[in-house]
């Protein structure tokens, strides 16, 4: 390290550091996992808007089941897929709190489809963060409802066949049709620009909770480099080439 670099590393020159809403625990996620970035964005939004004491998260079953170890806020743990139902209860008991669920695609789009559909249809005043990496990451890379046609997983070793396994489920478009949702968007966290946009979407979702604008639903298209059997950099490239044509980014509904 040159003398000049040491001269720059001073508190007054600080431009970016880990937000205090994230704990110092080392995340258990694989190297390059999108969950880390999404956790960080949620923590930054909570810290910057000053709602750390008023926020309650509901964590899912899946890789992010241990999210409560990393975000220094109040948490509840829901059974597989049932996070929107638990969040409904918390939100109705504490209408002044900011309640959000953090779910993966195996949790939300598969076993929890009924819960998320009806929570959104009721227009519960919660934020739902849905990380879609087209695979069951924690259990060993099995096919999820969101797995792309032809995608190789451990349960579709010859690629997903629509005659056998059906089509990938675009759950975000489905939820946008429900009258209860106020803000439905799809974002990604693969580049600095996309990360900034995703952060703005998360901030807007929490602001909508304050305005009681219905359910806010944010899908974040992510990677699973271990499940996809790629390096994190290759996984990001694969996501851009294969996931984005099926799951295009952008706001789907904003009232």
């Amino acid at each position: 390290m040159t003398v000049e670099t040491i001269d720059i590393i001073r508190e007054e020159n600080l431009v970016y550091r880990k937000t205090p809403a994230l704990t110092d625990n080392v995340m258990h996620y694989c190297p390059g996992c999108s969950h880390g970035v999404v956790h960080k964005l949620v923590a930054e939004v909570i810290e910057e808007t000053g709602i750390r004491e008023q926020t309650i998260g509901v964590s899912p079953v899946g890789c992010s089941v241990l999210a409560y170890n990393y975000l220094d806020i109040d948490w509840a743990e829901a059974a597989h897929g049932r996070a929107p139902a638990v969040a409904t209860g918390i939100s109705r008991l504490h209408p002044e709190k900011y309640v959000f669920t953090y779910q993966g695609d195996g949790d939300l789009a598969s076993i929890g489809t009924a819960e998320v559909m009806h929570a959104c249809n009721r227009g519960e005043n919660i934020v739902i963060i849905f990380v879609n990496n087209a695979i069951y990451g924690m259990t060993g890379g099995q096919m999820a409802p969101t797995t792309l046609v032809g995608q190789v997983t451990s349960t579709t070793p010859y690629g997903r066949d629509v005659k056998l396994n059906g089509f990938p489920m675009k759950i975000t478009e489905l939820l946008a049709q429900l009258d209860g949702t106020g803000f439905v968007t799809r974002q990604a966290v693969h580049t600095p620009l996309a990360i900034r946009k995703a952060k703005n979407a998360i901030r807007k979702a929490f602001e909508n909770t304050k305005k009681d604008k219905g359910t806010s639903f944010i899908e974040i298209v992510g990677t699973c480099s271990s499940g996809w059997k790629m390096t994190p950099v290759d996984a990001n490239r694969w996501m851009v080439e294969n996931m984005f044509p099926k799951y295009p980014l952008g706001d789907i509904k904003d009232i």
């Binding site: 720059i8 970016y16 994230l22 880390g36 970035v37 960080k40 990360i195």
Partner: peptide, 11 residues
């Protein structure tokens, strides 16, 4: 921004 483990500090 892109660091998933929030281990980078920038000045």
């Amino acid at each position: 921004l892109v660091c998933p483990d929030a281990v980078i500090t920038v000045y």
